[in-house]
């Protein structure tokens, strides 16, 4: 083994599991994981109640009881875990869509799924007039899937064409944006304010009961994504080549879209629409690793981006906790301008 010069270094596993692990991708993943752990630690330590590393460890793994434990385990930890898992989920969702559309613009926030989730949540809050967390989350989930279905039906005539999907997605996204504004304008100011703040995307006030089911769901979806990653990479060769290698193209593509939509929708259901992560994380990971073959670096980058954005949003202005969506939206806007500029120049 190891007689082929792949132009990259691999670690060959020879046990019952025969794998080629890309060393660069693994190193990048490890570095980001270390950064995530450090950042998570920091996030658990700081706040109105300042804690030491030892105290956080004692709360997490030791026998600490009382108020400090409540702060770490019940108040801060769900938020940190949510940022990590949803960040990874959004990034993987973005990676799947960018791979299917073969375009860095093809991410769920650009394609309109996030707007669709917002529409779903708004309908629940403003039309059905329910402010319960669970119903809003359900509304967001249904909104995301319904939007995906509409885009799928419009864009998938005689197979997929990436660009068609993007154009249809942008159109639907714009329509949904107006629907959202209309819904907000027609409702009472007080309700509209709450609904509007949901639309920014935030991890504020999140707790275990809300977050745990979503986290588990996203983790299951991520496992499915890893299993489907190999056919996904075959599909990048084009439909004919992928089919001739034995990939069930249409079925696989449908399942992948389902996974990607579910990833975005469940993250959005809990946080509200958080843009930029799905769009940028796969591209950032690609810049670092020079390959899109593995989902691990993308997931790690996504988790890091959302976690650090949330830490920044909490600490940037003393005494004021910004919604994380505000931060990612501003970053996303800058990134999008750069991406369009870059694409226009290389085209």
């Amino acid at each position: 083994m190891g007689r082929i010069d792949f132009g990259r270094k691999y670690l060959q596993l020879k046990g019952p599991v025969k794998l080629r692990l890309d060393i660069r991708s693994m190193s990048i993943t490890a570095i980001f994981l270390a950064a995530i752990i450090g950042l998570a630690m920091f996030s658990l330590m700081v706040g109105t109640l300042k804690l030491s590393v030892a105290e956080v460890f004692s709360a997490l793994f030791g026998d600490m009881t009382g108020f400090k434990r409540t702060v770490v385990i019940d108040w801060r930890l769900p938020r940190v875990l949510a940022a990590i898992v949803f960040g990874a989920g959004l990034a993987v969702s973005g990676s799947i869509f960018q791979s299917i559309t073969r375009n860095p613009l093809g991410s769920p926030d650009i394609l309109g799924f996030t707007s669709g989730s917002y529409t779903g949540a708004l309908v629940v809050m403003l039309v059905i007039k329910s402010m319960s967390f669970t119903t809003i989350a359900m509304g967001a989930l249904i909104g995301g899937f319904a939007t995906a279905l509409v885009i799928y039906l419009f864009a998938f005539r005689k197979g997929t064409q990436g660009f068609r999907l993007i154009i249809v997605g942008i159109a639907i996204s714009t329509v949904l944006g107006s629907v959202n504004s209309m819904l907000l304008l027609q409702s009472q100011a007080e309700v509209a304010l709450t609904a509007g703040s949901w639309g920014v995307g935030s991890l504020n006030g999140i707790d275990w009961s809300h977050v745990l089911p979503a986290i588990l769901f996203v983790l299951v979806l991520l496992i499915f994504a890893v299993i489907m990653n190999r056919p996904l990479r075959e599909m990048e060769l084009g439909k004919d080549a992928a089919k001739s290698h034995g990939v069930h193209f249409d079925r696989t593509q449908f399942l992948l879209i389902l996974i990607a939509v579910a990833l975005t929708a469940s993250a959005t259901a809990i946080m509200g629409p958080v843009t930029f992560v799905a769009l940028a994380a796969p591209q950032i990971a690609l810049r670092f690793t020079n390959t899109a073959e593995s989902l691990a670096p993308t997931a790690a980058v996504g988790a890091f981006v959302l976690l650090s954005a949330d830490v920044l949003a909490q600490r940037m202005i003393p005494g004021m906790i910004l919604p994380v969506g505000v931060l990612t939206l501003s970053l996303g806007g800058l990134y999008l301008v750069w991406l369009l500029f870059h694409q226009a120049r290389s085209a």
Partner: peptide, 15 residues
């Protein structure tokens, strides 16, 4: 050997 195929981004020949 299809009429048209696309190579994934940044892929090397052996890969």
């Amino acid at each position: 050997l299809p009429q048209s195929s696309t190579a994934p981004d940044g892929i090397t020949v052996a890969n």
